[in-house]
Nucleic acid binder design. Structure first.
Lengths: 111, 111
DNA sequence: TCAATTAATCGTAATATTGCAATAAATAAA
DNA sequence: TTTATTTATTGCAATATTACGATTAATTGA
C-alpha cells in the first residue's frame, strides 16, 4: 500500500485535500507569506529568503503551482510568481463553511 | 535527505504547517466533515463511513488528534471523538489574516 | 471468570515527500 | 557567438506517509 485511495472520496474532498496538502509544509507557508508581503517576486528572491537550495525552492514552487495557489509568468529569463487569488477565494469559502458551522455549534454537542 | 528543516522557520509557520498538513488528506477531510455533521461519534462509526480499515482510520484519528484538530474522550470501551473548537478557531484566525490581506490587494500587484 | 466489544499498536509493504548537487534549457547581454 | 543569468529537471538518498492484517489492551456484560 502507501497510495491514497483517491477514487473513494467526493470530488470536493479531493480538491480541498489537494489544495490544503500543498500548503502543509513550513517552506511553502513561508513562500506564501513572503509573496503576500512583496506581492510578486522571482524564484531567486525566495532562494535568498529561505534556508533551502534553489532546486528545493523550485520544487516547492511547482507544488504550489500545481495546486493553483500561485501562478508564474515568464519575464525575460526570470519567472514572476504571485498568489493566485482565485484558488485562495475558493479555499476561503470552503473553510468558512466549516468554521461557521463549528462556531454556530459552540461546542454544545461535544464529548 | 527527506526530513523537513524544522529549525529554520518561525514557530508560527511550523504550527500552521502542522495543523494544515494534518488536514491535507481526503480521508481526514472526510472525517472532519462527518464529525461536523454528527457532532461526535466513536471510531467504529467512521470505519463504517469510510472505505478504510479500522487500523487506518485509527491512524488518521491519531494524526488529527496530535494536531489538536479533534479530541477524544473515553466512554466505556469506546472513545468519543469530536472537533476541537480551540484549534479550529486558531486556524481560522491565521488563515483570515492571509485571506483578508489578499482580498484587500485584489490582484492589483500581480504579474 | 469468560466472552464480546472497541480502539490502539505493531509489523510490514508500497508509495510519496523532502532536499540537494549536477545538469539542462531558455533568454538576455556583451 | 559567447557568456551570464535564471529556473527547471534529473538522479539520488533519506525519511515520511498510507494502508492493512494481526495482535494487544482495556472495558463491559453475561
Amino acid at each position: 500500500m502507501g497510495a491514497t485511495k483517491t477514487d473513494q472520496y467526493t470530488e470536493r474532498q479531493l480538491r480541498l485535500a489537494t489544495i490544503i496538502k500543498a500548503l502543509g509544509h513550513p517552506a511553502r507557508i513561508a513562500i506564501v507569506e513572503y509573496l503576500l508581503k512583496v506581492d510578486s517576486c522571482i524564484c531567486g528572491d525566495i532562494v535568498d529568503e529561505l534556508p533551502l537550495a534553489q532546486a528545493t525552492v523550485s520544487q516547492h514552487l511547482r507544488e504550489l503551482k500545481s495546486a493553483n495557489l500561485i501562478k508564474g509568468e515568464i519575464e525575460g529569463t526570470a519567472i514572476c510568481y504571485c498568489l493566485n487569488q482565485e484558488t485562495w477565494s475558493l479555499l476561503n469559502e470552503e473553510l468558512q463553511l466549516i468554521f461557521k458551522t463549528l462556531q454556530a455549534k459552540n461546542n454544545s454537542a461535544c464529548c
